[in-house]
């Protein structure tokens, strides 16, 4: 297990390195550099340009130097000082801009994965154990609807339901009346009341997919010789199902963490806009449209790192769960 873990962790290093280079290359893509943009901006506004300040910035980012020197300065600042550079669109440090939003995004992602697991697990098991039953077909149909309907559409419908039947203010994560209030039970409940909408919206497609995967995997496993063999030595039916086929069929629960994280962090822009959520998605969209390259590059870097971390997490969980994974790489 130790060898397997070491390998998984070590393999992250080159991956992250390549990701950071690509992110930085994206930052560097537009013609000119950060300073020329800033100078142009200030001149357009008729501001004085402080040469000393310019020199300090030039020094700070290593502008005019080779790509790799600039990259080196950028990445060391990122790694050692969490300084991702400056967003000229917002005229604020990137780290400050991203911090809150990232917390919300990661929090929502984790909540969504938990939601997917909690919903997909019993339904998947039920559908496999009662294959071709009415319930199986009903869940299959709901699942396909979840897969087929665009997320923003579901978001709109859920918001309408929230407003119409529960009297909730649409969008955001907190109602206006609590916006500036200190944290108390009412505010917590209000936040939870708002959060379920994005979680359900993001969760539908993943849940539907995972139900199908779990159902099919479990159906395959239920027919494996080792199930018959276990039955033949008198293992009671429920215990048999949980212990043998179900445990193998659980693999996708963990192996999907990586890609579910990726799809949530990257592709939530539209839903976040619809729901008026301050996640990283809309920020990235705006940064790209405004050619705010330090912000865009940083967001890409952070998202990619999170995906890599998610993959690592799922690999480690798989290794813990499945001895075949553990031993095949453990040698």
């Amino acid at each position: 297990m130790l060898g397997y873990m070491t390998r998984r962790v070590l393999i992250m290093v080159p991956t992250l390195f390549v990701i950071s280079i690509i992110s930085f290359a994206i930052i560097q893509l537009p013609p000119g550099d950060y300073l020329t943009t800033m100078v142009a901006e200030m001149e357009a506004q008729g501001n004085e340009i402080d040469e000393a300040q310019l020199d300090a910035l030039r020094e700070r980012y290593g502008l005019g130097e080779s790509f790799f020197t600039q990259y080196y300065r950028w990445i060391t600042n990122v790694v050692f000082h969490l300084d991702f550079g400056h967003s000229f669109d917002w005229n604020r440090p990137v780290s400050g801009l991203v911090g809150d939003r990232l917390a919300l995004t990661v929090g929502l992602s984790i909540a969504t994965i938990l939601f997917i697991w909690i919903v997909a697990f019993p339904i998947g098991v039920y559908s496999a154990m009662r294959q071709h039953s009415v319930g199986d077909y009903a869940f299959t149909m709901v699942g396909f609807i979840g897969l087929a309907v665009p997320n923003f559409m579901i978001a709109l419908v859920l918001m309408w339901i929230g407003l119409r039947y529960f009297g909730q203010s649409p969008g955001g994560i907190v109602s206006p009346e609590y916006a500036d209030a200190a944290w108390n039970l009412g505010k917590v409940l209000d936040v939870l009341g708002h959060l379920w909408v994005p979680i359900v919206v993001w969760g539908t497609a993943g849940t539907a997919g995972l139900i199908r995967i779990l159902r099919n995997n479990l159906l395959d496993e239920l027919r494996k010789p080792y199930v018959v063999a276990a039955r033949a030595r008198g293992v009671p039916e429920t215990r048999l199902t949980v212990k043998y086929p179900l445990r193998v069929a659980l693999n996708p629960f963990f192996s999907t963490i990586g890609w579910i994280l990726a799809s949530l962090i990257g592709a939530d822009a539209i839903v976040s806009r619809v729901l008026n959520l301050d996640t990283t998605g809309p920020l990235l969209l705006r940064a790209l449209m405004a050619q705010d390259m330090y912000l865009a590059g940083s967001l890409i870097l952070i998202s990619a790192v999170l995906v890599v971390l998610g993959t690592l997490l799922s690999d480690l969980l798989l290794g813990w769960l499945d001895p075949r994974v553990r031993f095949r790489y453990g040698r």
Binding site: P225, V228, A229, G234
Partner: peptide, 30 residues
């Protein structure tokens, strides 16, 4: 009766043992 009064051995020995548990665990189970 299964496994106690009547034991059974199958054609594919590899596939008849679950890869998720040690062979000892499956032997102890009975």
């Amino acid at each position: 009766i299964r496994g106690d009064e009547i034991g059974m051995v199958f054609q594919e020995p590899m596939a008849s043992l679950s890869p998720m548990y040690t062979v000892g665990a499956q032997l102890s189970e009975t």
